[in-house]
Design a protein around this nucleic acid. Sequence first.
DNA 1: CCGTGTTTTTGAATCGTTTCATGAACGGAT
DNA 2: ATCCGTTCATGAAACGATTCAAAAACACGG
Lengths: 335, 335
Amino acid sequence: MTTTSMKDVARAAGVSVGTVSNVLNRPEAVAEETRARVLAAIADLGYVRNDSARQLRAGRSRTVAIVVLDVANPFFTDVVRGAEPLVESAGGVVTVCDSGEDVRRERRHLELLEEQRVLGLLITPVDDSSASWIERLTGHDIPVVLVDRGAGRHPHCSVAVDDVAGGRLAARHLVERGHRRIAFIGGPSAIPQVADRYEGCREVCEDAGVELEVFATPGLNFQAGREAVEAMLGREDRPTAVFCANDLVALGALQGLTMHGVKVPQECAIVGYDDIDFAAAAAVPLSSVRQPRAQLGRTAAQLLFDEIAEGTEHTHRNVVFQPELIARASTALEL
Amino acid sequence: MTTTSMKDVARAAGVSVGTVSNVLNRPEAVAEETRARVLAAIADLGYVRNDSARQLRAGRSRTVAIVVLDVANPFFTDVVRGAEPLVESAGGVVTVCDSGEDVRRERRHLELLEEQRVLGLLITPVDDSSASWIERLTGHDIPVVLVDRGAGRHPHCSVAVDDVAGGRLAARHLVERGHRRIAFIGGPSAIPQVADRYEGCREVCEDAGVELEVFATPGLNFQAGREAVEAMLGREDRPTAVFCANDLVALGALQGLTMHGVKVPQECAIVGYDDIDFAAAAAVPLSSVRQPRAQLGRTAAQLLFDEIAEGTEHTHRNVVFQPELIARASTALEL
DNA sequence: CCGTGTTTTTGAATCGTTTCATGAACGGAT
DNA sequence: ATCCGTTCATGAAACGATTCAAAAACACGG
């Protein structure tokens, strides 16, 4: 069965293809009676527009791509959710690509997206090596907005959250509750987020004259938190609070402490980072630093459309959001 | 700046467009020397294939769409991950669409996907009302595989997990550990998954002469579990174990019990369903029924490609997988 | 140098829309 | 009846790749 095209519809309705096209795209420009006839033919034949042909003619697609490091990470799903409504209300479509933190996968996606002539791109690059690839896109007139990686100089718009401020928030929260010995759990420090969060924490501790000890982990996952906390337990001058670079790490720490009979928050307080859904759902609800994730997505999409609209007049903007501390049971005690 | 097309490349390399096309698609058919010249021109001009034109000619795209109920749900992300490698190794691309359990969003996606002439579709439909829309696609020669909703009769391939068996597994596990009074927490029972899991549980309890009480919830979320368990706590003949229709519910139950000082598993055992990552990460690691999610995705993709390859010879297949019980601390005690 | 067979290359047709200059149809004013 | 201004409809020319029959180039034996 061959697919039916506008030509078939035109024939069935006794009009020209141009008219069918007008019915679809500028219905007000075609006479009432004709329009009805064409619509009837469309329904009758079950005609469906061919998007490839449309795009070929238009020169670009209506797709905005979002390239994320991990689709399963709630951070990114929320960013996507934030961006979607804006894109859709602008008549666009969102497509999500998962690089899985793998440069090769990311590259493959970028190639494909360029072949598809996407309208624009929101991306959290895997690492600096992506820069040249991304610039290739902008060179071909595909606007790009960087998400949560706006640190360095770069010729793009970007949105990000101030991780140093987040680190400060967490540390200040703990210091205010009387903690004088704090542990930072997280790593590797090559990840800018980790480094920044640590940096903010360090500043505050230094200013307050509070002891800060680092437990470096190989990654930001559950296991890492559990192991780090176990390393900490043997010690006699054990910190009375831990700040984890990530909620997963914090949940690992929580389980580690619980299983060794250390009471949270009575014997050890915990602050996490990201405020994932499970932070509130933990056996001891977790205090955490929340980032305005949906807004990050919304703003990124907005910047993209601004850039498209402004054309050559455009000058890049870099928007930085401030995080917020959500206090829960895991830090509910003053020492 | 206008995008460069094959014509430009052809001119630059001093050959015809047909030859350029051959270099890209059947390089072995073009002379060594010519090929080199064309490739040089491509690199030189920064030429990028136009996928719309390609697809227009080809009549279909290389995209396999997966329409899920919730991208943030680990169940679906794993299904997607399972399907991806197979699709990509077949030269396809995966695109994920989130219906958000909303029929209207789902419909919009289906319309768009049909306009894009996708290669095929894996979908977990929002409800039965989707059926007619989906059949429209198959009517237009777009093969569809149903994921985890293969219950009724339907003219498609499908993959699913046997939820009744899952319910039986959970109940049997609890009965074997000596529990004689069990609670089922979950709802609404209109959801086939909930109904099936309950059904399996009921069978086993009935056969074993074990008392089963249902705490119906309005949804399958954290809050629901917490509230259900609180309703249960007041009672004197309190069940000694709960089977939750879902891990989120189970985590809610766990938090509810913990906060009211009820020890898990000593005073109340818990079994969840889905074995999400956080099940193992809970303060008391959660026993849970695991579904072979990635395999579900893999198989769905396989069925899709089979259908494409077999053409009219194809007869639909319905594959049902068996779930597995993962025992952890939350049921670690014999009564 | 010719015929034959093989390897390369060509160029036109095609896919299904959109766009736009042109033309037809019609009504009303003169 | 003629002319003019609207309102609608038309049909051909893009858009950029792929395909394929046919032409060209080449190799080689006689």
